[in-house]
Design a protein around this nucleic acid. Structure first.
Lengths: 132, 132
DNA sequence: CAGTATCCAGATCGATACTG
DNA sequence: CAGTATCGATCTGGATACTG
């Protein structure tokens, strides 16, 4: 088997990180893999303009209020979305993607597409494994 | 804010998936974000040849035997690694990357590199958020 | 409207002990 | 050597009820 040079590059980058940074990288990676986080980001990206909490909740089917709140807080904390509160009655809160959020989506897309495209391979592997 | 065309492409791919496939895609994405899974795959990639259980365990610092077993089983089930058992005493079991596993690493690398490179941005965002 | 607070069931993970 | 089995602490996420 050949070594994957591309991976070595990432390894070098990772080894240059402090322990604290490594933790942070891992947490961001968690966002990337989290269904709700990604779906929320994608919802904001597709909209192209700020969305209210209730609008996001309606778009991201199946998410609970609690989970959406948590997800949005995490994304905000990581600098991926902005949260703007308007002093109105009833209250209005709008969420929007940041530049960093857009960048993240753009970097996630190729991987996600590959996984989606390869779903047949994965399904086949599973079927084979489970058959034994 | 501009719409992210690239993301739309992934969205279209996702919407073409069956519910079952969607689940599978999500599970693979979980592997991608899992620290142990990725580290295990990277270990096998760097080695360039099959590795014994104990060797992997020694390389992936901090992983418990239980977690490594689970991780390897998942990776095997998803067709990312192979598991070969030699009928010897004491037993020898060797793990190796599959082609699919190599491909996955190659597709993960750009994203991972970007996250690592952007760790400063994320740290700054956090610091700002936490300051409030 | 956009949350917060509380409860609770299920998944997860490390540590430990045991085995083919 | 390469696991499996088990226990307890921890984390997660949904459902529900309440509030500025």
């Amino acid at each position: 088997m050949k070594k994957t040079k591309k991976w070595d590059k990432a390894r070098l980058l990772c080894e240059a990180l402090s322990e604290e940074e490594d933790l942070l990288v891992n947490e961001v990676a968690t966002r990337v893999a989290d269904k709700w986080s990604l779906w929320t980001l994608a919802t904001l990206a597709e909209s192209g303009e700020p969305l209210r909490f209730s609008k996001v909740m309606a778009t991201v089917e199946g998410i609970s209020q609690k989970s959406l709140t948590k997800t949005l807080r995490q994304l905000e904390r990581d600098g991926l979305v902005t949260r703007r509160v308007y002093a109105e009655v009833p209250p209005r809160v709008e969420y929007a993607l940041t530049e960093l959020g857009v960048e993240l989506l753009e970097h996630v897309e190729p991987l996600w597409s590959w996984v989606a495209k390869s779903v047949g391979d994965f399904a086949r592997a599973r079927k084979e494994y489970d058959a034994r």
